Computed example of a mutant assay.
Amino acid sequence: MTQTATPSRPLAPAPAWLPWAALLVVYVVWGSTYLAIAIGIETVPPLLLAGTRYLVAGGLMYAFVARRRRSARPAGPSGARPWAAAAVVGVMTLSIGNGGVSVAEQSVPSGVAALLVATVPLWMILADRVLNGRRVGLVRGLALLVGLAGVAVLVHPGGDGTGSTSGLVILLVGSASWGFGSVVSGRLTLPADHLRSAAMQMLTGGAALLVAATVSGELGDLDPGRVTLRSLLALAYLVGPGSLLALTAYVVALRTLPTTTVATYAYVNPVVAVTLGALVLSEPVTAHLLVGAAVVTLGVAVSLLARPRPT
């Protein structure tokens, strides 16, 4: 489009309620994705579900970003280097992290999955120590121990309704990969535009998931005739609200609100997930689950509020 020479009017400031509304979207929508995954994998194989979600969402977001910046060159690096960086982060967070959630929810309730994924900030503390040499400090170290104690409660073999051991292990590995991938992202050359970077990560992570689905035989085992409308609607929810809307809301909130405020989604999402899992899928909410959830939430909350110590 040809730009005119007339001076542009300054943009009106965003209303004060907008970032808070955006954070509410992150609370509810990201918390509800665990329920959507559980419904989606009822008739769609887990790796195929996750791969399709991120390829479609990443393609739509990348097209939006490209259209938005058609008249101006995108900020930040271009070429193969940012794509390679996006692939590393996308595989660690989306392929292993979220793909692991999809696989694990075949044998683990969605609420328990959300609680274990909530430990990502704790894994980030370990990753920051291992990769960057950052001192943990007393408060964050205590938060780490408390959070891991909560994990121990949740994965204890005697726990009721927590799911299979293999599923719990997959969730912990996926959460650790997500935490380490988040820290690694700070050491790589990613696009400055958060939406463009997220789109590239979704595209590369989604492609890796589809390769994994093919190698594991999921594509060959898929029977399109058995896929229900319920699962397809869950997939559409994961692509639209679960990826595009929630991520955009997250960026809006992060640009205005304090980081520690936005980070509270890490311990609000599990509450939403456990509640929806109980109401919609009749997942059990036992005393064992509530104790583990309380301990994990306490550890994560302290870790997010504590300031990291300098290296």
Rank of each mutant, 00 (worst) to 15 (best):
T165K: 04
L168H: 01
P157Q: 07
S182A: 15
A207I: 13
S164G: 07
G205T: 08
G163D: 11
D193M: 00
L171C: 06
T165D: 09
G186I: 08
T165H: 06
T162D: 01
L209M: 13
G205S: 14
G205Q: 03
D160G: 10
P157T: 08
W178G: 06
G179V: 00
I170M: 14
A207F: 15
L171R: 11
S175L: 02
G167I: 05
V169C: 01
D193E: 01
G161C: 12
G159P: 03
G174Q: 01
A208P: 12
P191E: 05
G167N: 00
L209G: 07
F180E: 01
P157F: 03
V183I: 14
G163R: 11
F180H: 01
S185V: 03
L188V: 15
M200C: 07
A198D: 08
D193S: 05
S166E: 01
R196T: 08
D193Y: 03
A199E: 06
T162M: 10
L168M: 05
A176R: 08
G158I: 10
V173W: 05
H194C: 11
H194R: 15
P157I: 04
G167Q: 02
R187N: 11
R196W: 06
I170V: 15
L172Q: 00
P191A: 12
G179S: 09
G159D: 00
G186C: 13
V211H: 06
A208H: 12
M202W: 10
P157K: 04
L195Q: 06
L168N: 06
T162S: 02
P191R: 10
V169K: 07
H194F: 05
S197W: 02
L190N: 09
G205W: 11
V211N: 10
L195K: 01
